[in-house]
Amino acid sequence: MQPFTLSWDADRLAWLRERVRAYRMPRLPEGAGWRYGCDPDVLRDLCAYWLDGFDHEAAAADLNRFPQFLARNEDLDIHVVHVVGEAQGKRPLLLTHGWPGSVYEFWQVIEPLAFPSRFGGRAEDAFDVVVPALPGFGFSGKPRAPIGPRTTARLFDRLMREELGYARYHAQGGDWGAGVTTWLALDHAASLKAIHLNYLLVQPDAEASTEAETRWRKGAQDAQARLGAYADLQGTKPLSLNYAMADEPVAQLAWLVERFHDWADLRERPFEAVFSKDTLLTNALFYLATDSFGTATWYYAGARAEGARRMPEGTRVTVPTAFAAYPDPRTLAPPREWVERGYAVTRWRDMPRGGHFAAMEVPDLFVADLREWARG
């Protein structure tokens, strides 16, 4: 475990800014909006702000508010944020992000989870918060070949037990983080007290048999057809995307920001009210400033190779499982009966708002839900 201070490489930043200035927009259909991809007007505005308004040093200072380390794990360095809160080692909580997120997904919730008394909460609800970056993402090391959530679960369990000294812990995740958390429960159950999911990535070894399950499966397939082309490409031919995106930070930014728009809960707030320019650019720098856009997309191919989206035949999660059903446009929450086919569901909450990026979109709801869950 080596202490780590986040900083942007000055030469890399200068090169990125040069590429942004030189970028020429392709021919675009009139009034495109978000219909065919990232809204051109939003992208232009973001690029202009990146060049003339975004404060890279202020972003780095904010990202260094919490203690961070690099932990050598097998043949990879894992970047990990580790905040020992009022729990003083008594309630470790592993938070795992997804794509196109980063450890920054949890920046608004780390302090309230670790130090609830600072936010009007109870000290006894505090966690020791651990937020590692997925392999190939951000400041974590880049694997030699694609790996997925099952391999990551092994790495993160070793991180928690051997590097940080937590014999047992709570774990939470959405998106790929939900996959990592589920595989922790399947392969390393003895390490876990309970798990919390806000996305169902690893499906039960079962077929839909009720009207509600069939309707949900049809809705999930429709959502994949509308929003999932990126996943099919990244899961089968990530290098084709990598070749096209190499040395094109504006294209990478558009690819990332499109998901934030399409997967956010925008029923009550416009996109710019949910995610500020500073938020979008800070998260994007975890890909662009570290040259990890490509290796992050490998994760989809790694998951396919591991068969990580479906439980092995005859298995189920026996670790107590909580599920927070947010109104996620990426894929609507499944019926509880379907989740119970593969998970020992002990808690279920239908959340009133918040989409795919729950910790970023509705941090107060996210924190309150985790506190209530851990009390049980």
Score class of each variant (00 low, 15 high):
315 T>W: 00
63 L>W: 10
57 E>S: 13
220 A>D: 11
113 L>W: 10
225 A>H: 15
285 L>P: 13
375 R>T: 08
2 Q>Y: 00
77 D>K: 14
116 P>Y: 07
334 P>S: 10
133 A>F: 02
42 V>I: 14
1 M>C: 15
163 E>L: 10
104 Y>S: 05
219 G>S: 13
254 A>R: 10
165 G>K: 10
242 N>T: 01
65 R>G: 08
326 Y>M: 04
185 A>R: 01
374 A>H: 02
36 Y>P: 08
308 A>P: 08
1 M>S: 15
307 G>Q: 08
222 D>Y: 00
309 R>S: 03
101 G>D: 04
247 D>G: 07
183 W>G: 01
357 F>L: 03
195 I>Q: 05
308 A>Q: 05
21 R>M: 08
186 L>F: 06
53 G>W: 00
375 R>G: 06
371 R>L: 14
156 F>N: 10
79 H>F: 09
237 K>C: 01
180 V>A: 04
212 A>G: 02
240 S>A: 14
129 V>E: 02
338 W>L: 15
161 R>N: 14
369 D>E: 02
6 L>P: 11
48 A>Y: 01
349 R>D: 03
365 L>H: 06
309 R>M: 12
183 W>A: 04
261 H>S: 06
20 V>Y: 10
6 L>F: 15
358 A>E: 05
199 Y>F: 11
1 M>D: 12
99 W>R: 03
119 F>W: 14
193 K>L: 13
313 E>S: 15
325 A>V: 06
294 G>D: 13
187 D>E: 15
212 A>P: 00
160 M>R: 01
219 G>E: 12
46 L>C: 03
74 E>N: 14
291 D>E: 15
283 N>R: 00
164 L>V: 10
179 G>K: 02
265 D>G: 09
66 F>E: 15
353 R>G: 02
151 T>S: 10
204 P>N: 09
242 N>P: 01
63 L>T: 07
22 A>R: 10
4 F>K: 13
62 D>G: 13
112 P>T: 01
26 P>V: 05
127 F>W: 03
186 L>C: 09
2 Q>L: 02
57 E>H: 10
296 A>M: 07
175 D>W: 04
285 L>G: 11
3 P>M: 14
212 A>N: 00
37 G>A: 09
231 A>T: 14
263 W>V: 08
290 T>E: 11
337 E>K: 11
115 F>E: 05
286 F>K: 03
327 P>D: 02
94 L>H: 11
110 I>P: 05
118 R>G: 02
78 I>K: 08
360 M>W: 11
364 D>V: 11
319 V>E: 02
78 I>M: 07
349 R>I: 00
110 I>A: 07
323 F>T: 03
1 M>G: 15
368 A>W: 11
144 R>Q: 13
344 A>Y: 03
347 R>F: 00
350 D>K: 04
321 T>C: 09
79 H>Y: 09
270 P>L: 04
299 Y>E: 00
60 A>G: 04
359 A>I: 05
143 P>V: 09
106 F>M: 04
175 D>Q: 01
95 L>Q: 07
165 G>M: 06
282 T>G: 13
28 L>F: 00
176 W>G: 02
55 D>K: 13
61 A>K: 08
250 V>S: 03
297 T>P: 08
164 L>M: 13
136 G>Q: 06
64 N>M: 01
299 Y>G: 08
